[in-house]
């Protein structure tokens, strides 16, 4: 954390999806956190935990159901047209699937330049070409790639194009939604190194959503763990991995396979019985109670709230 200035503040955010007349899916249920300027906040959780919905609601892609998201003090969901346009210039997103997130009918140049045109960041065509080329070089592609179409590129290259597109409008906040999970291991490392470098160079703030815990730890300053729409633990990334306090975080960390046979052999894994319950019908009380080996009666009755148990280490668990 370079500064303590809050850039994005999420207060009791809720996002429900109406499935049919009777059922409601509570994808994000009362989540609060802050992102400080210049930091990377990682969000991890298994599929269906609401991490993507949470990210998208935070930057106004989805309407909220309740709660508030403040970006530099401004409510993201109550902006007028002018404010919204400025907001979309400040906040950009990188998507998971490098295949479906780029328009196949456009040349790379147009994909990257579109944002600049919309926000009138360039005065002339020549300047536009120059800017696009600069971006391409920054993300590790060649200038001549600008005149090609997306299908001519590999997955890793496409993800680089996606990053160049996001950076084209000079944003200060990046939402990275599983930017590397569709890529091969060796290419993942390229993209992660690139993201870390660009972030340092441009002083970006970012929210990094992924299910790969070791990657999230690597790239984030702080990490939040989500389970069934709730934030169950939030701490500095080193602290979280060294001293996980929530039983779910502990189980999640112990389940990561480690590419080291000696460690694998001698390690005690915490086994979670069963699977994530349907978010349409989560258990009463603490959502994790039916898989938690230490659940008490209180856990089944009353939902725990996220509170600070150690300095800057937040946990939502009755046992702490």
């Amino acid at each position: 954390m370079k500064t303590e200035k809050v850039i994005l503040e999420v207060k009791n955010l809720k996002k429900y999806f109406r499935v049919d007349s009777r059922r409601v899916l509570k994808a994000v249920d009362d989540v609060s956190f802050q992102i400080y300027e210049g930091e990377t906040l990682g969000i991890v959780g298994e599929s269906g935990c609401g991490k993507t919905t949470c990210g998208r609601t935070c930057i106004g892609v989805y309407d909220k159901t309740d709660g508030q998201v403040l970006y530099r003090g401004q409510d993201v969901h109550q902006m007028n047209k002018v404010q919204k346009k400025e907001f979309t210039k400040q906040v950009q997103m990188i998507f998971q699937d490098p295949y479906s997130s780029l328009d196949p009918r456009k040349k790379v140049h147009d994909i990257i330049a579109e944002g600049m045109r919309i926000h009138h960041l360039v005065d002339s065509g020549a300047q536009e070409v120059e800017e696009v080329q600069k971006l391409l070089l920054q993300v590790g592609l060649n200038a001549e790639h600008a005149s090609r179409y997306v299908h001519e590129f590999s997955g890793g290259q496409r993800q680089r194009i996606g990053i160049a597109r996001a950076l084209a409008v000079n944003p200060e906040f990046l939402l990275c939604d599983e930017p590397i999970s569709a890529l091969d291991v060796s290419v993942q490392a390229q993209i992660v190194n690139l993201l870390v470098r660009l972030q340092k160079e441009r002083g970006l703030t970012s929210m990094f959503i992924a299910h790969d815990l070791s990657m999230v730890k690597h790239i984030s300053d702080r990490v939040g763990v989500m389970y069934l729409g709730n934030m169950v633990e939030l701490a500095a990334s080193r602290e979280l991995y060294r001293n996980p306090l929530h039983p779910y975080t502990q189980a999640l960390l112990s389940a990561i396979p480690i590419p080291n046979p000696e460690i694998e052999k001698n390690r005690k894994q915490i086994h979670l019985a069963g699977e994530i319950p349907s978010p349409m019908n989560p258990p009463k009380g603490c959502h994790f109670c039916n898989r938690c080996s230490r659940a008490k009666d209180r856990c089944r009755m009353e939902a725990p709230v996220l509170r600070e148990v150690e300095p800057q280490h937040y946990v939502a668990c009755h046992l702490q």
Binding site: V185, S186, Q188, A189, V192, V196, S214, M215, K217, H218, I219, S220, D221, S237, R238, Y241, I256, I258, P259, N260
Partner: peptide
């Protein structure tokens, strides 16, 4: 290529 949990952050 894969980050291990022991690795320093952002290395």
């Amino acid at each position: 290529a894969a980050p291990s949990l022991e690795l320093e952050n952002k290395q």
